[in-house]
Simulated assay, not measured.
Amino acid sequence: MPKVDYRLNALVDARFGDKAHLADLARIAALNGATLIQYRDETSSTREMIEQARAMCAALAGTGVPFVVSDRVDVALAAGAAGVHLGRDDIDAATARSIMGDTAIIGLTVKNEADAETAIASPIDYACIGGVYETLSKHNPDPPLGLEGLARLRATLLAAEPNLPVGAIASINAQRAADVVAAGADGVAVISTIFAAVDPVAATRELRACVENALGEAS
């Protein structure tokens, strides 16, 4: 059984720090249906990131929901996070594994066939395919994959690693969650759908329910 439950990965982006404490946002998501919490911060200093990540770890204590840090193995280790999520320009997964150990959670972004082949050859615990749709949350020079691209890359991954959890990311809302699961995803990664919502509690619960319903229909 995969050690990562990827049904709902809630990405707590530092951009939402002016809305509420990031640690509070992480706990809200964890208590209302998120199965993985990911901290993404592309602007803060290393010191600030470590402080935020430590606060998020503390807030998630007792929830049973694992916490990973985007891109930064050093921050993940310093904060006591469960693992790290890596992109194509970050440290390679094999090196991250050698530093963080066998029990760490290591995820990888997959944007194209070359990334998929890299993922297959890497010691990772999940892959996240995207962007499936156009996103405004970060600069992405790659065009959206669409549902066909998602299905194609998912098939490539699972042909080699049939038990690898595979998620989907980029502008996914409740309706699109059902669509990406139907295309083969095991779950979704979201930012604004939860944390830009007027009611993040309700948004998290709704999204988790949509994923569950779609997984039930796909099984």
Rank of each mutant, 00 (worst) to 15 (best):
M1I: 11
I120H: 01
M1W: 09
V65M: 10
E161R: 13
F16A: 06
A82W: 13
A127Q: 10
R27C: 05
T204A: 14
A58D: 05
D71G: 06
E42W: 01
N32G: 12
R27W: 00
D125L: 01
S137H: 05
V211W: 00
A178K: 08
T118V: 11
E206K: 06
V188H: 09
Q38L: 14
R40D: 13
T156W: 09
L60I: 06
A96P: 02
S192T: 13
A26C: 11
A203N: 00
I37S: 03
A119C: 08
G62Q: 11
D13A: 04
V190Q: 10
V12M: 08
G17K: 08
G80S: 09
R54Y: 02
E42C: 02
A183R: 03
S45E: 00
A174E: 15
A214V: 08
A94W: 10
P66E: 12
A114V: 14
A116V: 05
C210G: 00
V12A: 06
S137R: 11
D115R: 10
L22C: 12
T43W: 02
E113I: 09
G107T: 10
A114T: 15
V180W: 13
M1E: 13
P165Y: 10
V12T: 06
M1F: 05
G187K: 02
A79E: 12
C210V: 06
V84W: 14
D186H: 12
L164F: 08
Y133F: 15
A203M: 02
G62S: 08
D115C: 14
L150Q: 07
R205C: 03
S171M: 07
N9T: 14
V201A: 11
R15A: 06
A14I: 07
T103Y: 06
P200A: 04
S98P: 03
A14C: 08
I106R: 10
G101V: 13
